[in-house]
Computed example of a mutant assay.
Amino acid sequence: MRTTRVLAACGAALMMIGGGASLAVAGSGPEAELAYHGAASLAAGRVDVRFTPRNDGASAVPDTSVRLAWSEPLADRQTLPDGCAPSGDRAVLCRVGALAGKGVGKPVSLRVQLREAPSEVLLEIGTVADGGQGSGSGVSDPQRVLVLDTGDEYYF
């Protein structure tokens, strides 16, 4: 089922969530197909995430940010890479920038500390596109990754 959510931190942003979410770009014609491929690991409440954004569609995307949300609250203090900022108590937004049609973006790596040390955490990865202004196209279900506290990498 396709759903839309309002992301307060980006003001009325339409989130495009999922590994292959379609994002209609201004004008008619081919669409962008945004996807994120990477890995996440959890050890003692610390989550390491690395991924590479891809646009498998024919249309370029002028500006894109990814939202990473965890099922557990984040610790109050985080050291995040440039281009990333906290969004509420369970999410981080990272700027991906423009993606050419059939293009690959710069890899993103970050580490977050959870408030507690759970045995597992659910990570949801989605796109906030068009500088926070929705395109009106449909949204697919979130791309979800269950990460166990084993220190092992879980790929998505």
Rank of each mutant, 00 (worst) to 15 (best):
Gly57Ser: 05
Val92Asp: 06
Gly101Ala: 00
Gly18Gln: 05
Val96Ser: 02
Val112Cys: 02
Ser65His: 10
Ser41Glu: 06
Asp63Asn: 10
Leu68Val: 06
Gly97Met: 11
Arg77Trp: 03
Gly11Trp: 04
Val112Ala: 02
Ala32Cys: 01
Pro81Asp: 09
Leu146Tyr: 07
Asp82Glu: 14
Val121Glu: 05
Ile125Thr: 15
Ser28Met: 10
Glu33Thr: 04
Arg50Asn: 10
Ser140Lys: 11
Ala69Gln: 14
Asp48Met: 08
His37Phe: 09
Lys106Pro: 06
Gly103Thr: 03
Ala100Asn: 06
Arg67His: 09
Ala117Val: 02
Ser109Asn: 09
Asp82Ser: 13
Ala21Pro: 02
Pro53Glu: 05
Thr52Met: 09
Ala39Asp: 12
Asp89Cys: 04
Gly126Thr: 01
Pro142Asp: 07
Asp82Trp: 10
Lys106Leu: 08
Gly136Ile: 01
Ala35Lys: 00
Cys10Asn: 14
Leu23Val: 11
Leu7Tyr: 12
Leu14Val: 11
Glu116Arg: 13
Pro86Arg: 14
Pro53Ala: 02
Pro107Phe: 01
Ser65Val: 00
Gln133Ile: 11
Met16Lys: 12
Gly101Leu: 02
Glu124Ser: 15
Val104Ala: 14
Ala39Tyr: 07
Glu116Ser: 13
Asp76Ser: 14
Ala8Met: 01
Ala60Asn: 04
Ser65Ile: 00
Gly20Thr: 08
Ala35Thr: 07
Ala21Ser: 15
Leu99Ser: 07
Arg111His: 06
Pro86Ser: 10
Val145Glu: 13
Val49Ala: 08
Ala35Cys: 08
Asp89Asn: 14
Arg67Gly: 06
Gly131Glu: 06
Ser87Cys: 15
Arg111Leu: 02
Cys84Asp: 10
Ala24Asn: 12
Val66Thr: 14
Ala39Ile: 04
Val128Met: 14
Glu31Trp: 03
Ala100Leu: 08
Arg95Phe: 02
Pro81Leu: 06
Ser65Asn: 09
Thr52Leu: 10
Val104Phe: 07
Glu72Gly: 00
Ser87Phe: 01
Arg50Leu: 07
Ser137Asp: 10
Asn55His: 01
Leu99Asn: 03
Pro81His: 11
His37Asn: 09
Ile17Gly: 15
Gly105Met: 07
Ala129Phe: 15
Leu80Gln: 11
Leu123Tyr: 02
Val25Tyr: 00
Glu72Asp: 15
Ser140His: 12
Gly132Ser: 05
Glu31Cys: 03
Pro81Tyr: 11
Val25Ile: 09
Ala40Trp: 03
Ala13Cys: 14
Ser140Tyr: 10
Thr4Arg: 12
Pro142Met: 04
Val25Glu: 12
Leu42Ile: 02
Cys84Leu: 02
Met16Pro: 08
Leu123Asp: 01
Ala91His: 05
Met15Gly: 14
Asp48Leu: 10
Leu123Ser: 02
Pro81Ser: 12
Val96His: 05
Gly29Ala: 01
Ala24Glu: 08
Arg46Cys: 04
Leu146Pro: 04
Ser71Ile: 04
Leu68Met: 12
Pro107Asn: 11
Leu14Phe: 13
Gly18Pro: 11
Val66His: 12
Val47Ala: 11
Lys102Tyr: 15
Thr64Arg: 10
Gln133Tyr: 12
Ala129Asn: 13
Cys94Glu: 03
Tyr36Ser: 14
Val49Glu: 05
Val139Glu: 13
His37Trp: 07
Ser65Cys: 11
Pro118Cys: 07
Met16Val: 06
Ala35Ile: 01
Val121Ile: 06
